[in-house]
Each structure stands twice: as structure tokens, then as C-alpha cells.
Design a protein around this nucleic acid. Structure first.
Lengths: 250, 250
DNA sequence: AGAATAGTGTCTTTCAGACACTATTTG
DNA sequence: CAAATAGTGTCTGAAAGACACTATTCT
């Protein structure tokens, strides 16, 4: 692992974020409109370069990839890093993309992150992005760079992890009903699980949800029973899992 | 995404490989002894810098992360890239590690790969490594950098993917018996699945293995029936999954 | 023969999914 | 009341795991 920086073409490392939320029952992804070349005007995932430098004493300074992802998300949403709503965001690393020609300017390695949130505000155009918006995942045409592939990977990760982790609770507020949780699965998977079976199954998984012994203040718009209110439990893995309806094809 | 390379501290991107194989019924990982500082003499995962440059016409040249991983693996094992035995190796990206101080020399982002192989040769000390060897995963003390954490992540990935993918077939030759497959699960998981149930379960998963309608030339050392021979099927996901015995704790 | 290994039968329990049903609330 | 929503009961079939058993081949 000998190394001389000058022997190598400079490489850059960026983070790109697949930020997902649910609005009006549909899964949305945060996209920015690029304000400069390349791909000027094209929609892209929010992201940016990872910062590192040396301080006056020559010590290495910088941010980790996780920190860079939080910073980028904060910039796009206009929230201060450390804001309570940002701390409730689920953030996890997806994968690193390295095609030599993925950015025409230079060698860029992009580390993709998946961010899941319940209630992030409408984005503000930040820094180098001309505009930003939550876009339904079905209406994302012609993304810049290889961001379509990254988005697809992010969606698949989210869909898979709903099965065996309590990740769905990241999409709802701190208190929620079983129906709200089911709406998350419906939005992410594209199929609405059977209400009765879903209800029983969620309650049967130890540590998935905790009953708060309260009910909603009123039923549905046009009638209906009031529902009990739950919060997320302490399970990190769901046993048994909540399987995708299409997950059991044989 | 504006960028000026000179405004940033140079960063390097490396690949580090968690290469696993099974020897004498035990899971082994490929480790090298570092031939230079930092961590001189310490064991480490094989790895190295990703190469990129510009050609005479100024065009960007270089290798992808996947290509770099294959190259590193080839260097350590002494096989030519493209060798048949290398093409049978399962290679997948694990995660990218970014702690600012993980390498004292400079900012280094390490993209970790998981490599699973049946029959790689004894490693040859390559380039910057003083020595290399297959080490039982339980006997890996004090690895360099953050390689202990990377190894742990790689092991967990391998253990988890044995459940729901036909990855176990990567650890055996092109033709194998059910018992050999079971030995893979035993080595990776640390628990030997029940032979009878395992047998029936493997055969019940569509596309996991294909019966070659032949039997081994002889039974066990001290007696025993000859076993049928199978090859890997075309399934990419196992339905139903082969669950870890401890995977169902509630 | 007896030990060792491969492979099968069968039972119990758990869980997914279908579907019908009860419980409650709203207009 | 009727419609809508929450939540339960019950059945069927798939599959996991325990365990006993049969089948075959070695010394």
C-alpha cells in the first residue's frame, strides 16, 4: 500500500442521497434541478463532495461519509444539522458507484446513501441546485449521471428492508396507527397488504410496535372506528418478518 | 456540484478485500502481512489503491472498483486476471469506510469487497505485502487499520446471504454433494444444520441445486452410502430460504 | 457384522394468507 | 340507519424443526 499522491490522477468522492418520504400516500424522492454543467437543468439526486483538508498544524480534518450525507440533506431541506427532524431520519449507506465515465469532468466515486423520513419540509434550492422538490418515484424521468440506477438500488433496498426491519416506522411520526403503518407498506411496495392480516401480524412481532393505550380523537372521514395509537418498539429485526405479498412466488 | 480539485485535500480510494474460503472444514480469510509503515508487520486485508489516470489525449482512464478488486485478488493469489478460477469467485461490494483517521498518512476511503471462493491457491506474497496466508477467521488478531471491523461486516454479510441466496455454492467446486454444501453452512455459521432436514430442504428449494444423476465413486472413509452429485441451479434467490438455526430466536 | 454416511417419513408447531365476522364511529 | 374503518376468529396450506427410520457402502 505504498502511495505517492502525485502519481495518481486526482479523484473526488461525493455522496449522493436517495431521500424518500411519503406524501399523499405515494412514495416521493427528493430531487434537485442541476444549476450547472454537466447535465444542466436535468434532475439529479442531491449530493456533493465530501470535505477534507488539513488544519494549520497539518493534521487531517474532514467529515466522514455519514456526516457528509447529513450535511447535504440538511442543506437541501433547509434544516440545521442537528435539528430534531433530521435526527429522526433513518440514514444508511447504499453502495459506491465508480464507472470511469460517470462524471465527464474527472474521476468521481459516488457513495450513495438512503435516507428515509416522515416529515421533512419542502426543500429549498441550495447552493448549486437551481431547484429542489419531492417527486413521486414513478415520475422521475431522465436523471443526471447514473442517478437512475442509484435510485433503483435505493428503492429496492427500502422495499427489502421493510420486510425484516422496523424501517417502516421511519416513514411515520413518533406516534402512529396500524393503518398508517400499512399505508407505508402500500406506498413503498405498491401493493396494499390485507388490512386484517397485516394488523394481526404487526402486533405479533415482538418489539415492532408498542401500544400507547390511547386512541385517535376521531374515526375516519366518513365514519369508522377510532384506532389505537402505537410508537416504535425496540426491535431492530422483525421476527417473524413482514413479507412482501409478491415475495413468496415459487 | 462545482468543484476545483486544488481546493481539496487529495483523497485516495482503495479497495480492501474480505476473501473467504473453506479449508479443512473451517472458514478462512486471506490476510497479508504488511511490509511497510503504517502497521508494519501487522496482518491486514489485501487491498490497494484504485488506479485512474489520463491518457495522452487527456481522456480519463482507469479501473472501476470491481476491476480493482479483481486485480488485487489476482495479485495476492498469483493468478492472472481472467483465470478460470478467478472467474468462479463470487465478488460483491460490502461498504465504504471513511473514518478521517483510519489511515494516518492521508485521507483514504476504503471500499470493501467480499470475495467467496472454493479453491483459490495458497497466496503468494505480492508487491507491498511481506507475506500472505489463509487464516482461520477465529484466529485473526489485531488487524491493521479498521480491518477488524471490515472483516466482521464481511462475515456477517456472508452469513446472512447464505440464508436467502445460493451463495454457498460459491464455496464448493462446480460439482458437489449435499453434504459438502452442508459443510459450507456449518463452517460459515458455526453450527451444523441437521443433516436430514437440511437435505430435504435444499432439494425443496426450486433452482438451488440440479441433480446430475451420478453418485460419488465411493462412500465415506469408514463406510457410508455414496451420495448423489449436484451442480448449482439457476436460482438467484432461495424460496423458501435456508434459515440459520439461531435466526429464529424470539 | 457393525459403523458410518445418505436419504426419507412423519409429526408438531409456527406462520402466511384467505375470508368471514364483530366492534365502533361518522354522517 | 348505512357506510366506513378497526380489529378478531378461524381455516388451509407451507414450511421449520425434532426425531425415528430406511438405504447403502465401507472396514
Amino acid at each position: 500500500m505504498d502511495y505517492d499522491p502525485r502519481a495518481y490522477e486526482p479523484a473526488a468522492v461525493t455522496v449522493d442521497i436517495v431521500a424518500l418520504t411519503i406524501r399523499d400516500g405515494a412514495l416521493h424522492v427528493l430531487l434537485v434541478e442541476r444549476g450547472e454543467e454537466p447535465f444542466l437543468g436535468r434532475l439529479a439526486l442531491p449530493g456533493g463532495f465530501v470535505r477534507s483538508s488539513r488544519d494549520a498544524a497539518g493534521r487531517l480534518r474532514g467529515e466522514t461519509l455519514d456526516q457528509a450525507a447529513v450535511r447535504e440533506l440538511a442543506e437541501e431541506t433547509g434544516l440545521r444539522p442537528g435539528h430534531a427532524r433530521l435526527r429522526r431520519v433513518h440514514l444508511e449507506q447504499l453502495a459506491t458507484y465508480s464507472a470511469v465515465d460517470r462524471d465527464p469532468r474527472m474521476r468521481v466515486f459516488s457513495v450513495a446513501y438512503l435516507a428515509l423520513a416522515a416529515d421533512l419540509p419542502d426543500p429549498v434550492a441550495g447552493g448549486d441546485a437551481a431547484a429542489a422538490a419531492w417527486v413521486p418515484v414513478g415520475e422521475t424521468r431522465r436523471l443526471a449521471f447514473d442517478h437512475a440506477a442509484i435510485l433503483a438500488d435505493g428503492l429496492e433496498r427500502a422495499r427489502a428492508k421493510l420486510e425484516y426491519t422496523p424501517l417502516a416506522t421511519s416513514f411515520v411520526g413518533p406516534e402512529f396507527t396500524i393503518a398508517e403503518l400499512r399505508a407505508v407498506y402500500a406506498a413503498v411496495w405498491g401493493v396494499d397488504p390485507h388490512a386484517g392480516n397485516f394488523h394481526r401480524k404487526v402486533l405479533s412481532v415482538p418489539g415492532f410496535v408498542v401500544d400507547l393505550d390511547t386512541v385517535t380523537s376521531r374515526g375516519g372521514e366518513r365514519g369508522g372506528r377510532r384506532s389505537r395509537i402505537y410508537k416504535a418498539g425496540d426491535a431492530t429485526l422483525l421476527h417473524p418478518a413482514i413479507l412482501r405479498p409478491s415475495g413468496g412466488e415459487s
